[in-house]
Amino acid sequence: MKELIKMVVVLTIISSLSGGVLAYVNDLTIDQRDYQNLINNQAPTLKTILEGASNDPLESKFEVKYGPKKMKCYVGVFDGKPNTVVYETYKSGYADKVYVMVGINLETDKIVGIGVTKHTETKGYGADAKEKPDLKNQFPGLDIMQEFKVKKEGGTIDAISGATITSAAVCKAVTEAGIRYKELKPELETQVKQFSN
């Protein structure tokens, strides 16, 4: 009996200590981790999407709640009006997730630009989706509220040859962005007002 109590006590203490330490380390590093992710993956894409904006998109951001998670949104100010939001969605590709940033004009509901931010697809195949502009150049100007598909699956988007899966994943991610946009539009519209000056 005494041994059993000791076992339970020791296990509980070790588990709670571990939980405590991890919570502390998590708090300690979370800003730096977000920053690294931003600098390494999102910043270049974000700047291309919001080219010509009069503000610094990296600084103009807010968070909205989508499902259980928080979603970071970046704002672009054009002609004095904060009318463009950019956020990131993802879909599974061939080997891992493909992250796509999508910029949407709040007034016209049209796509301003997209960009692949992070992916671990096979070099030379799926990797082209990030480097080659052929895929992402097809999106600007399209209405966000629709389902995007590659031609092979009966859609309208030309896939990069040899990277059909990744191209399809990019399409799915943009579609996902549209689904979120439908749901979050009223909130996004209120949130961007804080950036008008």
Binding site: S15, S18, G19, L22, A23, V25, N26, P68, K69
Partner: peptide
Amino acid sequence: LVKHDLDYLQIV
């Protein structure tokens, strides 16, 4: 874990 923002306990 995801629901309660406890992702950092995932591995353990």
